[in-house]
């Protein structure tokens, strides 16, 4: 086992462990900061899948955008949001959560079973892709190719996403504005 494989397993473990910490943590702010750790470790895993541009985008959009937005949403909203989160889950938490744990564990078993049965490393199109030298190598620079593809082959989804982003921007600004008479 060389050092790269070791780092990969460490990153995978960090993803799982920090996601579990987020899931079981009672303190909301702590779970958000552990969410940071999960996202950074996931960006590292994207680098291992040779998708460095996606990794950088993950850090910029999630850590720079979504998490700061979540933190601001607390701090700008009422302080009671933070308070009434923490008092509630003091007792009987395990009994109420048994169905959710059951569903999640069963889903995990089904997924793991399906992944192992599918034997993805020996699938036909992956073999063909490896034969045709169509696999990204670690030394390749994929960013120019991605830019060209984004502007030619994937132009329609690109434009659709741009329109949807503008709709989301207008919608979020409309929802978050301060106007009292809207709710009466």
């Amino acid at each position: 086992m060389n050092i790269a494989t070791l780092i990969f397993y460490v990153l995978g473990f960090v993803v799982q462990a920090s996601a579990l910490t987020v899931a079981v943590s009672k303190n909301l702010v702590r779970s958000i900061f552990m969410f940071f750790v999960t996202l950074f470790a996931l960006a590292g895993l994207y680098v291992y899948a040779l998708a460095d541009f996606v990794a950088v985008t993950q850090i910029v959009v999630y850590v720079g955008g979504v998490l700061v937005l979540m933190l601001f949403a607390f701090m700008l909203s009422n302080r009671e949001v933070l308070n009434n989160l923490q008092e509630r889950n003091s007792r009987f938490f395990s009994i109420q959560k048994v169905p959710a744990i059951l569903v999640a564990v069963l889903f995990l078993l089904i997924l793991v079973n399906a992944i192992i049965k599918a034997d993805v490393d020996n699938m036909a199109w992956i073999k063909i892709s490896a034969q045709n030298n169509n696999v990204i190598q670690p030394a390749d620079n994929m960013v120019p190719n991605m830019g060209v593809n984004l502007m030619t082959r994937y132009l329609l989804p690109f434009e659709a996403v741009s329109i949807l982003l503008m709709m989301a921007l207008i919608g979020a600004a409309h929802l978050a504005r301060k106007e009292e008479h809207k709710f009466q």
Binding site: Q16, A19, L20, A104, V112
Partner: peptide
């Protein structure tokens, strides 16, 4: 798959 199960939970 593990991350998905945690998200479902």
């Amino acid at each position: 798959a593990g991350l998905f199960a945690i998200g479902i939970y």
